[in-house]
Amino acid sequence: MATTETLTAKNLAAGQLPGSAVDRYARRKLINYIFVGLTSIATAVAITALVMILYSLVAKGFSGLNLTVFTVDTPAGGEDLGSGGLRNAIVGSLMICAMGMLLAVSIGIMAGTWLAEYGDGNKLATIVRFLNDVLLSAPSILIGLFAYELFVVPFHGGSAIAGAIALAIVTTPVVTRTTEDILRLQSSQLREAGVALGAGKGLVIRSIIWRASRTGLVTGGLLGFARMSGETAPLLFTTAGNQFFSMNVTQPIASLPYTIANFALSADDNWRRLAWVASLLIAAAVLSANIIGRHLARGSQNK
């Protein structure tokens, strides 16, 4: 067997390699090619899927896009193709997301700050960090169900505020995690410099560490927003949907993901058109949040 052949001082001195070494080299090269090939194929598959999704979104969504999408509310079933819009769903989505972000960002930044600044060597912090990671990957339908039991059942009906809370539960772990990571990037000397002037640790965190981490924190918020704006399951349980325009946070409200879920599976051509347009709008929002977030993150690294 080739592998039993050994390098002896004798054939090394003679400038010879054991016969099997060349074979092994050829084999390594072949394995290398196969490995590179497999990773390339996997990448191509992933990219193709993404491109196909974006293509179908643009192809089918863009054609249905017009001004009335933004100025008219969702139509009843059976209306002419091209009539009706998404105004109530767009406004509803914006309201739910704004309230949800307000909750998620304030809780997430505070929790992340506690983990990064006060949690070292603290058992509770280890547990909180672990639970946060669990929540980070929890199926959003479970979170929707949880919010339904807690904020919909007792009030006998869905509401915008219940939807916002459900989305906040989905997003808070994202913001908590990024906040902790970002704050840990700041040097301990910067903290000490503030404390050495006689400032309390809390003040140092608020006026120096947060400020130094500003772009990172904004990036974390934007990534959270990207996650939030596409979430559908929690909204199905909590907002109850609304065919009409509403800005009452205690009443059922329309939203883009809810509208998509409702319209896309219907037999009504006009509804399906609007479902595509809504999908396009969400994709555009998520894409721009991601791009802005990454751009900011890169900008802060260059500084």
């Binding site: 040097s187 000397q189 410099a193 050495a196 006026s207 120096i208 400020r211 130094a212 500003r214």
Partner: peptide, 12 residues
Amino acid sequence: GMVFQRPTPFPM
């Protein structure tokens, strides 16, 4: 007061 090894200007 204290001054550190690396400069630590505050981000302001």
